[in-house]
Amino acid sequence: MAFFLMRCMNAPDVDDLREKTRPEHRAWVSSGGKGLVSVLIGSALVDDEGRSCGNFGILEAKTRADAEAFAEGDPFRKAGIVAEIELTPLPETFQAHRISEPMSPRLPAD
């Protein structure tokens, strides 16, 4: 298993579309993209004025390709809300066990 920091930045002027798409996005996250990944923690990102500008997540995935598929399959991405996705691998020493309540089911160990 590998861990990734996923950072998604919004396109400009997508507030209304984001609100409309939010239930689908939350269902995607809570299912781990239908089992592609485990979302350990995540949240909206805001700018200095408190306006939503994107979101982040800590993902556990079997492969980078699975993490990429999760990010690309997000309804926010498909609707054009997310303009930019950045996936950064986390070190093997990342202490995932410290996140006590993951946002989606944990992936089974191989």
Score class of each variant (00 low, 15 high):
residue 105 P to D: 14
residue 70 F to V: 05
residue 25 H to G: 05
residue 38 S to W: 01
residue 27 A to Q: 15
residue 69 A to G: 07
residue 6 M to N: 10
residue 85 I to H: 08
residue 69 A to I: 00
residue 79 A to Y: 06
residue 76 F to L: 11
residue 5 L to Y: 09
residue 51 R to G: 01
residue 108 P to D: 06
residue 67 A to G: 12
residue 106 R to C: 01
residue 58 I to E: 05
residue 91 P to M: 12
residue 106 R to N: 00
residue 13 D to Q: 14
residue 52 S to I: 10
residue 23 P to A: 15
residue 76 F to T: 01
residue 53 C to W: 03
residue 94 F to H: 11
residue 25 H to Q: 08
residue 69 A to T: 01
residue 31 S to F: 07
residue 91 P to V: 09
residue 24 E to F: 13
residue 44 A to W: 09
residue 56 F to Y: 15
residue 106 R to L: 13
residue 89 P to M: 01
residue 64 R to I: 09
residue 47 D to Y: 03
residue 13 D to Y: 09
residue 21 T to L: 04
residue 60 E to T: 03
residue 57 G to E: 11
residue 34 K to W: 12
residue 29 V to T: 14
residue 15 D to S: 15
residue 82 V to Q: 01
residue 103 M to Q: 08
residue 34 K to D: 15
residue 105 P to G: 14
residue 45 L to H: 03
residue 80 G to D: 11
residue 59 L to K: 00
residue 69 A to C: 05
residue 51 R to W: 03
residue 17 L to E: 09
residue 20 K to Q: 13
residue 8 C to F: 01
residue 50 G to H: 04
residue 26 R to Q: 12
residue 65 A to L: 14
residue 23 P to R: 08
residue 58 I to P: 00
residue 46 V to T: 11
residue 103 M to Y: 02
residue 80 G to C: 13
residue 67 A to R: 08
residue 22 R to M: 13
residue 78 K to I: 14
residue 14 V to K: 07
residue 68 E to M: 14
residue 74 D to E: 07
residue 85 I to M: 10
residue 100 S to W: 06
residue 21 T to D: 09
residue 49 E to M: 06
residue 70 F to T: 06
residue 29 V to Y: 04
residue 84 E to G: 01
residue 56 F to S: 07
residue 85 I to N: 07
residue 12 P to I: 15
residue 22 R to C: 08
residue 99 I to N: 09
residue 65 A to I: 04
residue 73 G to F: 03
residue 72 E to A: 15
residue 12 P to R: 01
residue 108 P to Q: 09
residue 108 P to Y: 03
residue 100 S to G: 05
residue 37 V to D: 00
residue 94 F to R: 12
residue 74 D to M: 04
residue 39 V to H: 04
residue 58 I to L: 10
residue 3 F to S: 06
residue 95 Q to K: 15
residue 75 P to A: 06
residue 110 D to H: 12
residue 63 T to P: 03
residue 25 H to N: 08
residue 28 W to N: 02
residue 108 P to T: 11
residue 73 G to Q: 06
residue 37 V to L: 00
residue 62 K to L: 11
residue 75 P to N: 03
residue 87 L to S: 10
residue 55 N to H: 04
residue 101 E to K: 10
residue 21 T to Q: 14
residue 44 A to I: 06
residue 43 S to G: 15
residue 13 D to L: 13
residue 63 T to Q: 05
residue 28 W to M: 01
residue 83 A to S: 11
residue 99 I to P: 03
residue 6 M to G: 08
residue 34 K to F: 11
residue 77 R to I: 00
